[in-house]
Amino acid sequence: MRRRRLSSAGPEVGALGLGCMGMSWGYRESMRDDAAAERVVSAALDAGVNLLDTAAVYGDGHNERLVGSVAGRRRDEAVIATKVGLVVDDLATRRMHRDGRPDTIRRAVQDSLARLGVDHIDLLYLHRVDPDVPLTDTWAALAEQVRLGNVGMLGLSEVSCSQAEQAHAVHPVAAIQSELSLWTRDPLGAAGSGRGSGEQDEPAGTDPGDVVAWCAAHGAAFVPFAPLGRGFLTGTLDDSFEPSDFRASNPRFSAAHRAANERILRTVRAVAERMAVQPAQVALAWVLQQGEHVVPIPGTTSVGHLLDNIAAAGLVLDAEALAALDAVPAAAGSRY
């Protein structure tokens, strides 16, 4: 598949990565199947999808162990990205808290290395900024892990441009991961049409800035999670979710907002029909065309869907398609 560079000084990766969270928690947890998930991770590596994205809190360590069970055996093929800075309080309800204290960061890195079964992490993100700890203190602790050889590159998740600048002054930011899709365009800044409801750690009503452009200007990769709108933009979801599914309580999937959000999906379907491709492929292609430094990480538990997603990396949207997609309305409902 097409390749992109994970930061100006980083390794080449597939234009699409693999988000692994849903293999352990968040969606359809009653259907969790570790053997099937391992097959998806293996198929991804076979196809050149080598950026594997996990985190310490996904299943309270389960997801790191799952990813490591495959990537550990194929270490030279995999670029492993994980995250620290969030701590699970209650696994059943997915309640967690932020902890960016340096001592906590040091312990968390060692725990992640053990669960993954590797001697270094290629890309380590600060999962969320802890408002009670200066970002520069947390980032310095992470930079120490790079100097020790435990980590290759550092990234941030769900931050503003001003926070990225603070961190970058201490140690280079190699990547920023935030939600970006046709129904969540906050990282494109105020100029991004149809912006959704921001969740960055800035004061209420403060624009996080054009984070995608900040990454391009600073040689960092921008890594969008949920580029398919948590499945909504595939056009294949029904209206029922099991109680443990995150989407069951997500405002954008509620009856109050579902009909309004169908307006976005109608445009995606129309473009897909005209181009004789799938809606999911159109949605992924739009994200990919936001910049050559953009590496989306759609998640899936199906090898078939993985292969469909990979095909999107070769899809180029024409001017008519881009104009229609750029003009879709903002999503109804906040994203959390």
Score class of each variant (00 low, 15 high):
Gly196Gln: 06
Arg2Met: 14
Ala175Thr: 04
Arg263Gln: 15
Phe246Leu: 15
Ser42Phe: 05
Val271Ser: 06
Leu45Ile: 06
Ala332Asn: 01
Tyr336Arg: 07
Leu188Glu: 04
Ala143Arg: 01
Val88Gly: 06
Asp103Ser: 15
Arg258Met: 00
Ile176Lys: 08
Ala114Arg: 15
Val295Gln: 05
Glu292Cys: 06
Val133Phe: 05
Met21Val: 13
Leu307Ser: 02
Gly192Leu: 09
Ala35Leu: 12
Glu273Gly: 13
Val40Ala: 10
Ala256Cys: 06
Gly196Ile: 02
Ser30Thr: 15
Ala191Tyr: 00
Pro251Val: 12
Ala319Thr: 15
Ala191Trp: 01
Ile297Thr: 00
Ala220Pro: 09
Leu154Val: 07
Ala175Asp: 10
Leu142Asn: 03
Val170Thr: 14
His257Gln: 13
Asp238Ser: 15
Glu242His: 01
Leu315Lys: 04
Val328Ala: 04
Val303Arg: 03
Gly22Ala: 10
Ser30Gln: 14
His293Trp: 06
Phe225Leu: 03
Met21Gln: 06
Arg258Trp: 15
Ser244Pro: 01
Gly26His: 10
Ala283Pro: 04
Arg2Cys: 04
Gln177Ser: 09
Ser24Asp: 11
Ser162Gln: 14
Arg230Leu: 05
Val57Met: 13
Leu18Phe: 02
Thr184Gly: 00
Ala216Met: 03
Gln281Leu: 13
Arg101Phe: 03
Arg74Trp: 05
Glu38His: 09
Gly100Ile: 12
Arg263Phe: 02
Ser157Cys: 15
Asp239Cys: 09
Ala114Asp: 14
Thr104Ile: 11
Gly194Met: 02
Val88Ile: 15
Ala114Cys: 05
Trp286Gly: 10
Leu18Gly: 13
Leu306Trp: 05
Ala140Leu: 12
Asp103Pro: 00
Gly291Val: 00
Pro243Thr: 01
Gly59Val: 00
Ala313Arg: 03
Gly235Leu: 05
Leu156Arg: 03
Tyr125Val: 08
Leu124Met: 05
Val211Ser: 08
Phe222His: 08
Ala313Thr: 14
Gln177Thr: 06
Leu306Glu: 11
Glu179Trp: 02
Glu165Gln: 13
Ser24Leu: 04
Arg73Val: 06
Met21His: 03
Ala108Cys: 10
Leu307Cys: 03
Ala190Gly: 14
Val49Met: 13
Gln200Ile: 00
Arg195Met: 08
Arg32Lys: 14
Ala260Cys: 04
Asp99Ile: 10
Val49Glu: 08
Val40His: 12
Thr301Asn: 07
Leu123Gly: 11
Ser249Ala: 15
Arg95His: 14
Arg39Ala: 13
Arg269Gly: 07
Ala217Cys: 00
Leu148Tyr: 12
Leu148Cys: 06
Ala81Tyr: 09
Gln278Trp: 08
Ala71Tyr: 01
Val133His: 04
Arg98Gln: 12
Asn50Val: 06
Leu66Lys: 02
Leu315Ser: 10
Ala190Pro: 02
Leu284Lys: 07
His120Cys: 12
Glu273Phe: 02
Thr301Val: 14
Thr301Tyr: 11
Gly229Ile: 01
Arg5Trp: 02
Gln177His: 06
Phe222Val: 04
